[in-house]
Design a protein around this nucleic acid. Structure first.
Length: 585
RNA sequence: GCCACCAUAGCUCAGCUGGUAGAGCACACCCAUGGUAAGGGUGAGGUCUUGGGUUCAAAUCCCAAUGGUGGCUCCA
């Protein structure tokens, strides 16, 4: 038995994509092939099918052909070609031309990978850097999963190719495991849970990407916002309030108009003045800062506000609560001197740690931090003084080190106005979302002519720091719904317990108890005796509410509460005081 | 915005190649008074997303719009 190379998994998937391409080329010989790499759990290949119409209905056909190729167990062999030979292999194929141009430009060798049958005949070939496994029989259990459009070379100005995705596993067990994972992830999907738990809804009449929050969803939003406000209170943030529309002049000054005017909702009043719905809050906040002459003694000035912004995202980009057109930011802006930046950013990371810690999400593996800096290749994309950028990037790096954030330097991810520390969290199916962020901004203070009087009596320019802890409440909710799979901790749960009387004889006592607990601050729902006890226990569990309280003869007599925690099969008996304490957890 | 797919009752879905709709859950009412994960019965609910077209006839076929899903592009 030959030893498997370290990159065997990748090779196997890569060969699987060649097998798929071979099948496709046999079925639709006019097809042109784009690129076809492998990813964590899948492989894909881009195709230009020309006039042929291929959809996921053709998957069965392709898979059948693939199985034939796998069963034939063709040898996979590498062949080196000269440029002219390689070019002549794909007459009239502009994609291969371009790929070969690139290889030649980089001075690399051109290799082909062939499928060869037992007589030595080449049955399929493609330009490819490899590597591959030794034969087509090795690709294992495979399945085509989805079909999507994708732009040639990832550029939306280019032609749209058809990308076919598939998965390939060494054996049936691993395939079953993978499918199980997908099922589990689907159960956590915040769109599904949002409907089941009655947290939010959408209406065709209101419009796409515009979520409507139910009482329970609103409770979650407000609890999150209030928790953040409480945590950051010690760091000196003051709340402000701004209107949701403004003249377009504001964004012309900020520089956002040119860049984003297509993505704004435009509002028409009686007069000629053009208004827009605010897509962000920082320009408004600068005007509060600018309303007075500031002294260096006043700095830092810290404003915070939980407020909704509106962005006309492209319909294809919308996704449940993760990507919406009305998003509520827990926004904050700090105006300070450059030498105060480090301390302020550090305080922001402390709030992030406290808040996510309270949710149990501040744990290794649950998130990572990006130190988002300039792309050295394209310095022209960034505004402001490079020396100040250097300083700011250095501050962020130091904060990351001192706070043990282990930030990963990500070049090209900085905003055009300054570097950032971004906190990235994963949703149920592994998609990453930026939630918390601390962004340094040199540009807007400049554009808005913000100033303060320094200790020498001269005018000086403050630095602005944008910060968000939850990011957008909508996106944040999508992540925590999936994180908790809808079973929120008691302190965050819109309903903390159901009171379930065993039968109608216990209803009066149960209602009285509900009132008593409500006065004590608990969020309790009464579940009357019209359904059978078993059914009510079942429904209470299904609702993912943290506790069920069962009230029958025993409880009326003893005065204790029989409670069952969500997800547990056994009950426990507690006093009212003990129960109220449990609700804080 | 681009590519593919999808849209039937409040929810989850069935309805084969055209002959004007069905289940379960939820809901209402009645019976059952039940000590721990679905007690029983009855009933009400749908211009089959919308607008065009083909046809004697459209939930079903075609076109468009709207909305959704999976990607691509974008994301202050």
């Amino acid at each position: 038995m030959s030893k498997k190379p370290a990159d065997y998994e990748g090779r196997r998937k890569h060969t699987a994509s060649h097998v798929m391409s071979a099948a496709v080329m046999m079925l639709w010989p006019e097809t042109k092939r784009g690129v076809g790499p492998w990813t964590d759990d899948s492989f894909y290949q881009d195709y230009d099918f020309g006039d042929a119409e291929v959809s996921d209905k053709d998957f069965k056909k392709i898979q059948k052909k693939m199985r034939w190729i796998v069963n034939k167990n063709f040898k996979v062999e590498k062949r080196m070609l000269k440029e002219a030979e390689a070019r002549s292999a794909f007459p009239g194929d502009e994609y291969k031309e371009e790929l070969i141009d690139g290889i030649v430009e980089r001075g690399e060798d051109i290799s082909f990978y062939d499928f060869v049958d037992e007589t030595g005949r080449i049955v399929y070939t493609d330009l490819c850097a490899g590597p591959h496994v030794e034969s087509t029989g090795e690709i294992g259990v495979f399945e085509l999963t989805k079909l999507a459009g994708s732009y040639w070379r990832g550029d939306s100005d280019n032609a749209m190719l058809t990308r076919v995705y598939g998965v390939a596993f060494e054996n049936e067990e691993l395939m079953a495991e993978y499918k199980h994972f997908l099922e589990e992830a689907a159960k956590r999907d915040h769109r599904k849970l949002g409907k089941e738990l009655d947290l939010f809804t959408f209406s065709d009449k209101v419009g796409s990407g515009l979520p409507l929050f139910t009482p329970k969803g609103t409770f979650l939003r407000e609890t999150i916002a209030n928790t953040i406000q409480d945590i950051q209170a010690e760091f000196g943030y003051e709340r402000v309030n701004i209107p949701h529309i403004c003249k377009k002049d504001l964004y012309e000054t900020s520089g956002h108009w040119d860049k984003f005017k297509e993505d704004l909702f435009h509002v028409k009043g009686k007069g000629d003045t053009e208004f827009v719905m605010k897509p962000m809050n920082c320009p408004h906040h600068t005007q509060i800062y600018a309303s007075q002459m500031r002294s260096y003694r006043d700095l830092p000035i810290r404003y915070s506000e939980v407020t909704t912004c509106y962005r006309d995202e492209q319909p294809g980009e919308l996704l449940g609560l993760s990507r919406v057109r009305s998003l509520t930011q827990d926004d904050g802006h700090v105006f300070c001197r450059i030498d105060q930046v480090k301390e302020e950013v550090k305080n922001i990371t402390k709030v992030v740690q406290a808040f996510y810690g309270k949710l149990g999400m501040y744990e290794p593996g649950r998130f990572w931090v990006s130190l988002s800096v300039r792309d050295p290749q394209t310095p022209e994309k960034y505004l402001g003084d490079p020396a100040e950028w250097d300083k700011a990037e250095q501050f962020l790096k130091e904060v990351s080190e001192e706070q043990g954030l282990d930030a990963v330097k990500t070049e090209g991810e900085a905003a055009f106005y300054g570097p950032k520390l971004d906190f990235m969290f994963k949703d149920a199916i592994g998609r990453e979302w930026q939630l918390a962020t601390a962004q340094i901004d040199f540009v807007q203070p400049e554009r808005f002519g913000l100033e303060y009087i320094n200790e020498k009596g001269e005018k000086d320019r403050p630095v602005m720091i944008h910060r968000a802890i939850a990011g957008s409440l909508e996106r944040f909710l999508s992540v925590i719904i999936e994180h908790f799979a809808g079973a929120f901790p008691a302190w965050l749960s819109p309903i903390q317990a159901h009171i379930i009387p065993v039968n109608e004889a216990h209803e009066a006592y149960a209602k009285e108890l509900q009132q008593k607990l409500k006065y004590a601050g608990a969020r309790i729902e009464y579940y009357d005796a019209s359904d059978s006890l078993g059914k009510r226990i079942r429904n209470a569990q299904k609702s993912k509410v943290p506790f069920s309280i069962i009230i029958g003869d025993n409880e009326v007599e003893s005065g204790n509460l029989t409670i069952r925690k969500y997800g547990e099969q056994k009950d426990q008996s507690v006093s009212e005081e003990e129960f109220l304490e449990l609700l804080e957890s």
